[in-house]
Nucleic acid binder design. Sequence first.
DNA 1: TATTGTTATACTCTATAACTATA
DNA 2: TATAGTTATAGAGTATAACAATA
Lengths: 177, 177
Amino acid sequence: MPERSPTDSPRPRRPAKTSTSAAKAAPVVEQVVEQVDTSYLETLIGYNTRRAALAIIAEFLPGMAAFGLRPVEFSVLVLIADNPGITARQLCDTLDILPPNLVGMIKDLEKRGLVEKRNHPNDRRAQGLYLREAGNTWLQEARQTATELEIKASNRLSTTERKTLMRLLQKIYLSEQ
Amino acid sequence: MPERSPTDSPRPRRPAKTSTSAAKAAPVVEQVVEQVDTSYLETLIGYNTRRAALAIIAEFLPGMAAFGLRPVEFSVLVLIADNPGITARQLCDTLDILPPNLVGMIKDLEKRGLVEKRNHPNDRRAQGLYLREAGNTWLQEARQTATELEIKASNRLSTTERKTLMRLLQKIYLSEQ
DNA sequence: TATTGTTATACTCTATAACTATA
DNA sequence: TATAGTTATAGAGTATAACAATA
């Protein structure tokens, strides 16, 4: 992996004249920052998206702790509920998680009596995953709570804005095929 | 294939019996999922935001590897460049990272000749962080590359849509004070 | 030969406790 | 007493390699 550093760059550099503003350009003095300027970062989709994701997760984690579900476990349970017989492989492909990291999660959900494995009709290597009877109404409550937490985390957005936001986000991560 | 609305209750298409006799292999209980239904997850802002963030990072990582910068390091450098004299504490507050996890990063950036510490004018506990002369034009290139990668990662969005997206995301994570 | 699920393991990222020197 | 920066370390999250059973 080639690393570029300003000190070992093979190309000749322009003189390091970057003085756009006198306040920021003087390199020798000791300055105090009163208000942090984040204007550039706020022009980056990646920065904004990551910050928003962290803010929502910060709301999700304590709110869903009553169900003992973290975001990925919740997603896994929902997919199993909405897709009875889904395989581990399908879960991994859908949620972008690696098979070894799913094994422990499924084991835990089984141990909690929420999920069970059954034979796959066509493929004896695979196993179908199913939500157990007890998990159904319970997951329904969890969904309700999750949705409420989402709305709380985005309470400055109107319903229309929420839809717009999700449409635009999907344009990003669904454009990868 | 029947489409399920996210507000509908998730009903597995199986009778409410959990004990399956091996002798009577009912074909209803073992199912095959052809197409994974993610409709409920796609109604969640948290899910969409996290997936989009991962997609952009997946573009960012290899693209910025030439600069030896991962997302957080890039953000730190940008903030130091745009806020000469910023302290570690201010960086942590702004980027939501914990002080112990910043120490190693700053050390590395110093070792690479990109950043230097100077005494804080008012507070002898703190240290001001500054981009070294050589880092300026170099970081300018990095910014240019980062912006190009962003546009590439969101190439299905128009300029207007990008602005809308960022405005909506900021409404989420800036609404936390 | 390729794929599903699994184990073991390594690596990265994030979090906690405790210390020092200053305020 | 509180804060800035640091150290050490623990924990969570993510990654790779290799294997058995099956396709």
